[in-house]
Each structure stands twice: as C-alpha cells, then as structure tokens.
Amino acid sequence: MEGTGKVAFPRPDPPIVGKVNHHSIELYWDINNAYQIRGPVKNWFKFSIEEEDLKTHAYGTIYSGYSRKHVVEGLEPSSTYRFRLKVTEFNGECAYSPLVSVSTTREPMNGEHLHRAVNMDDEGATRNVLQSGHMKVDVPDKLGFTPLMVAAQKGYLRLVKLLVEYGANIHRDNGSGKNSVMLACFSGHLDVVQYLRTQGASWETRDKSGCTAMHWAVDGGHVNVIQWMINDGCEVDTRDRHSQWTPLMRVSALTGNTDIARSLIRAGAEVNAKDRDGKSPLMVAALNNHEDLVRLLIESGADCSITNEYGISIAEMAKAFDRQNVVLILEKNKEERRLSVR
C-alpha cells in the first residue's frame, strides 16, 4: 500500500475490464459503492486511473475524478496495457489497487487492407481480408477504384477471379464511368479481358464521355487485345458523345498506330466518317502529322477531297499547320490519281 501514514480504508480492487476493441478499453470500479461517503463533494473519495509505462515502469494519470467508469481511447491494436486504480480520501490519504493487464484486439480488416493486398498482388492476404467478412468486396479507394478495377488494370488475373468469386461487381464503374474491362483493355491484359467477358462484361457499355472498351483499347495501343475484341464481335465504329470520334479517329488523333488502324479498317471501320466538326480520320491524321497513317488511310480509300464544316480541305489544313511531309504525300497522291485517269 502506498500513501502517507496509515490509511483508514481498504486497498481497492483492480479496475474491472469492460468492453475492449482495437483502439479502446473500458474500465470501471467500486461497483459496490465501498467508498461512498455522504455529504459535500469535498468529503468524497476521488478516483484516478494510472497507466504503467511498460518500458520505464513509471505511472501516468489518465483519469482523475469522481466517476466510476472511464474509457481509455486512442490505443494501438494488438497491444498490452497495464492499469491500476488510485483512491484518494478527502484528507489526502490514498491507496492503490493491484495492476490489471489488458490487451487490445487486432484491428478489424477494412478497405485499406483489401486495397493494399490487391496492389501488392498478394493472393493470400487478399483472401484473408475477404474471408474476414468485415467489408464489402467493392469498397472503392480514394480515386473511386474498386479492388476489381485495380486488379484488372494491373493484370492480376488470379486476384480478378478471386474477387469475382467473392461477389465483385464487374459492371461497376469509377468516377469517370470506366469499368474493369475498359481498364483491362487500355492496359493490354488480354487474359483479364477474356475472363471478364466470360463473366458477362459488355462491349456496349460507355463511360461518361461515351467511350466504349474499344475506344480505350485503341488508346492503350495493344493490337492483340483489339484483334481479339474484333473477333469477339466488338463494334469498331462506335462514336463517343463529345467529339463523335470513332476508334479510328482516336488512332488518327493520338497514336497514329498503323497496325491498330489496319486492324480496324479490315474489320470494317469507316475511313471517311466525320466527327462533330466535319473532320475525317485522314484530316485528323494529317493535322497530327502521322505520315504513315496518312498513307495507310489513302491506300484504304480515304477521300482526300473531303472538307470540314468550314469548307477547308485536307491539303489546306496541312499547309496551314506546316505539315510539309503530309502536303507532299497528298500532292503525290493527287498526281498519281491524275495520271491514272488519262
């Protein structure tokens, strides 16, 4: 017993442990009112909860007052803590209880654990989190990506199958409207694309700009994915909502990839389609100085005489933007056509 002089009241029992979780411990004491004194507050017993520092074995007071209950919060999960109760009489005499040792529980699994496991391609950890049953399989991260979207984008086929097994929604989209199959198409993960199709992924779904999986596959530049999509019946001339661009127009605007363009054209893509501003794939390719694509489009029947909504021709556009090599290609084609009709 600690204190000064002889203490006239009994040594208190250790605090009773109530509810415990991963970040808090409930303690309560004197349930039988052994230290109840009637009269003014100044004559009441005062209670303090002290915590032992496990390294220095010094004590620090974490609660002091007249209550008979306290919840210790802000604790670390899976950690041990030691507490004692101090009872102080109005005259300053005090007594201490024996120590009570309590361990917090393990932190429950949450969305961060699931996303961390998926990002690390850790199948065992992913399965453990899913089996804990503490969160939804489609919990989004800060960017609005579900674990399935992340796995599909990274090409983690085993995790994609595992997440679907646990009920992941393959049709769910993120903030821009892209779903898992679009992300897999853009990233070039054919095996993931093929699996998601067996699970019902649609080629017709659009994101918020009106783009389909084919638009995103074209942007990603993966010929093997695009060819498989074509063979699987995916439409090659779907237009987005903003610019009315077909996948072929996106090739003309962005990458100029002739292998992709050739696959689209062979599958029936319209080489003379016009976008919202009246530009054709050839015009767009010329403006972006994609010389090889300009040649391919001309060889594939692109009309060099098409004008945009302002009546400006492809050659005029190329000259205005100083696309000299394209101008030469167009002039050569014009001359060859002139000679062929003689």
Rank of each mutant, 00 (worst) to 15 (best):
G5W: 13
P12S: 05
D13P: 13
D13K: 13
D13S: 13
P14M: 02
P15Q: 03
I16L: 08
I16F: 14
I31M: 15
I31P: 15
V41T: 15
K42Q: 09
N43V: 14
S48K: 06
I49A: 01
E52K: 05
T56A: 10
G65Y: 02
G65S: 06
Y66V: 01
Y66K: 11
Y66R: 02
R68G: 14
K69N: 08
H70C: 04
H70M: 03
V71E: 13
L75S: 01
S78N: 13
S79A: 14
R82K: 09
V87N: 06
E89V: 10
N91K: 03
C94W: 09
A95Y: 07
P98T: 13
S101P: 11
S101E: 15
S103V: 08
G111N: 08
E112Y: 03
V118H: 08
G124S: 02
T126G: 08
V129T: 11
H134I: 03
V137M: 01
D138T: 00
K142C: 07
P147Y: 00
A151P: 07
K161Y: 00
L163W: 05
A168N: 12
R172E: 06
V181C: 04
A184T: 15
G188L: 00
A201C: 03
R206H: 06
R206W: 03
D207K: 03
G210I: 04
H215G: 05
H215S: 06
G220L: 11
V223P: 00
W228Q: 13
N231K: 15
V236I: 06
D237K: 08
D237G: 07
T238C: 02
H242P: 02
H242L: 14
W245M: 07
S252K: 11
A253F: 14
A253D: 11
G256P: 10
I260D: 04
I260H: 10
L264F: 10
V271R: 03
V271A: 09
K274I: 10
D275Y: 05
K279P: 01
K279C: 12
A285V: 07
A286R: 10
N288H: 10
N288L: 04
H290S: 07
E291V: 11
L297M: 01
S305K: 12
N308D: 15
E309I: 14
E309P: 02
S313M: 01
E316T: 05
V326P: 04
L330T: 00
K334R: 03
E335T: 09
S340L: 04
